[in-house]
Design a protein around this nucleic acid. Structure first.
Length: 548
RNA sequence: GCGCCUGUAGCUCAGCUGGAUAGAGCAACUGCCUUCUAAGCAGUAGGCCACAGGUUCGAAUCCUGUCAGGCGCACCA
């Protein structure tokens, strides 16, 4: 619908000899009174052409020779050109959807361009919690969306398996292991105290028996740490799977970056480019040459690297892999890092407009309406797997996706579980299940559904039916804007609107009636709605149940 | 103090990158199940889009300032 409109307008502009033709913007009007699709084109031209917008609109409309699928083109308001689709075109849409005409679902806007999306990347020192779940839901849906829109997507998880945190994990497990054996109980000051540490220590005991009993951390620490780290990685991978997130393509290890010498090489590269200097016994990156407000230390006076060093190496590694777009999804508490990473990108000569950071706001977890403070160190946190068990993966994902990534979000465990039956995800899923049930019903009545795509649809006359089809036609337009803006939450809103239109239609009109031709036409319409519901839910990573 | 994010109905949030008359879900009130699933539908009510300027044909949307909340400002990771 969008493409057809633009083509018509472009042809008209050519006829009028208006060149260069400005980019043509079309939009779906808020109400049907303004047509099915509309353009403010004439208003935008009024300045350069020095003519009244309505006058220009008249000229454009007069220059349209082939009206395409539109039966009515009219000028309204300050100079909008409003297009209304013919009923035949609308009915034909239903057939095309049933015949799997993919152009009605999405446009290939990616054209194979390669996108890297990094998300979650939680430290491998414990299970994922509710905060990570939001990043996971958004990242997963965004990847699905971009993939569907024709981009070559790689999903990536960066593992901070080097440095202090991971050592603390090893020390915590070591201490817990000694405790289990009744040994000395010197638990590290800032160690992790969650139940999962006890579980892992018990596993260690089961696997290695008393091999490390009373052995000091200094002599068995690296072995235990490496072992515990692998357990944590398994735990995270299992959480990802439990939550119904598609598998990652790449797990990039920070330690590997050091082992392969990439950190050193990245710094050498920056030095060659003239962005490195030494001061006060430390080595600095002059990020102020770019967007950062202060320079950053990368090698401390004691000779060790800062965390930023491996970040430099990691982002250079991303650049070396030649992606067209690089997306990092971070918790909003890391927003202060954007300028310095952007600076790194620019220092390596990369067009930083191809680098995009999506900030996912913190999840404000509530219990009984009260803030529930989580601390991994203290072991008081709600794990992702707990939430999935309590609330369900679909509901959790859908809730996270009904909001812009950077809006604050209260996740009240009581509300979410108590009202789960009124959750918007069920509203949408219910529409899908309901259609399924109607189709089943038709089958048991002996109606042949195999040729719905070729059914005569002239019986679709009702306002509700035409409105429903128009909504289906806006699906690819919505998907495109969601993909361009990297905002998968728009899909959830579309779904609620589509489901709403369907529920209303369902209540006002029987699909299966005495009139067989009409019944078939309505069954076809229902099937077409189902196609889109299923498609959109799949992109969100939410299931579409057959029955509820 | 500086920077980033947020401020839209009683509550939680949308608002399609500047368009036409401001949108939904909860909560409140009124109706609807001998009819394909009531996890549903129909209706009522609810607004100074934080505030003040500016930009233009046109602003919830862009710019400046103010106020309020959140989060960052390490030779930690």
């Amino acid at each position: 619908m969008k493409k057809e409109t633009i083509n018509i307008l472009q042809a008209a502009m050519e006829t009028l000899g208006i060149s260069p033709c400005p980019p043509i913007d079309v939009e779906v009007p808020k109400t049907g009174a303004f047509g099915d699709i509309s353009t403010p084109l004439a208003m935008g031209l009024s300045r350069t052409l020095k003519k009244a917008p309505r006058k220009i609109a008249e000229e454009i409309v007069a220059a349209i020779k082939d009206r395409g699928p539109f039966e009515k083109i009219e000028i309204a308001g300050p100079g909008f050109i409003n297009f209304s689709l013919s009923k035949d075109y609308l009915r034909n849409t239903v057939s095309r959807l049933l015949m799997q005409d993919r152009s009605l679902l999405r446009e290939d806007i990616g054209q194979g361009r390669r996108v890297l999306v990094e998300y979650v990347s939680a430290n491998p020192t414990g299970p994922l919690h509710i905060g990570h779940a939001r990043g996971a839901a958004v990242g997963n849906a965004l990847c699905n969306l971009l993939e569907e829109m024709g981009y070559g997507v790689e999903r990536e998880y960066y593992i901070n398996d080097f440095g202090r945190q991971i050592k603390l994990l090893g020390m915590s497990v070591h201490a817990q292991y000694q405790l289990l054996l009744g040994g000395a109980s010197e638990f590290p000051e800032e160690g992790y105290r969650g139940q999962y540490i006890v579980d892992v220590a018990q596993e260690l005991l089961a696997e290695k028996a008393e091999a490390f009993k009373d052995v000091p951390f200094s002599s068995c620490g690296s072995e235990i740490t490496a072992w515990a780290y692998l357990k944590m990685l398994d735990l995270i991978k299992s959480d990802v799977s439990i939550f119904g997130i598609k598998k990652y393509d790449n797990w990039v290890s920070e330690r590997d970056l050091y082992d392969r010498g990439e950190v050193g090489m990245a710094i050498t590269d920056l030095r060659d480019r003239g962005y490195i200097y030494e001061k006060d016994g430390a080595v600095w990156f002059r990020s102020t040459d770019f967007t950062d407000d202060k320079d950053r230390v990368i090698i401390k006076t004691d000779g060790s690297y800062t965390y930023f060093s491996s970040d430099i190496a990691y982002h250079k590694d991303k650049l070396d892999r030649q992606f067209d777009i690089i997306v990092d999804i971070w918790g909003a508490d890391h927003h202060g890092y954007i300028p310095r990473i952007e600076s790194v990108m620019q220092a390596f000569g990369y067009d930083s407009s191809k680098f995009k950071v999506i900030l996912v706001q913190m999840v404000n977890l509530l219990k009984h309406g009260e803030p529930f403070k989580m601390s991994k160190r203290a072991g008081t946190f709600v794990t992702l797997s707990d939430v999935v068990e309590l609330v369900g993966a679909d509901t959790t994902k859908f809730i996270f996706l009904t909001r812009k990534a950077d809006s604050h979000l209260d996740f009240d465990l009581d509300v979410v579980t108590a009202q789960s039956a009124e959750n918007p995800v069920f509203y949408v899923q219910y529409a899908h299940a309901r259609i399924n049930s109607i189709l089943d019903n038709a089958k048991t009545k002996g109606i042949d559904l195999s040729a719905l795509g070729n059914t005569d649809l002239s019986g679709l006359e009702l306002e509700e039916e035409l409105t429903l089809i128009k909504k289906l036609l806006t699906y690819p337009i919505m998907l495109e804007s969601a993909a361009r803006a990297c905002e998968p939450h728009r899909i959830t809103y579309y779904l609620q609107e589509l489901a709403g239109l369907f529920h209303a239609y369902y209540h006002q009109h029987k699909v299966l009636t005495e009139d067989m031709a009409l019944s078939l036409a309505r069954l076809a319409l229902c099937s077409a709605v189902r196609v889109v519901l299923l498609d959109a839910l799949t992109i969100l990573g939410v299931t579409a149940p057959e029955k509820m």
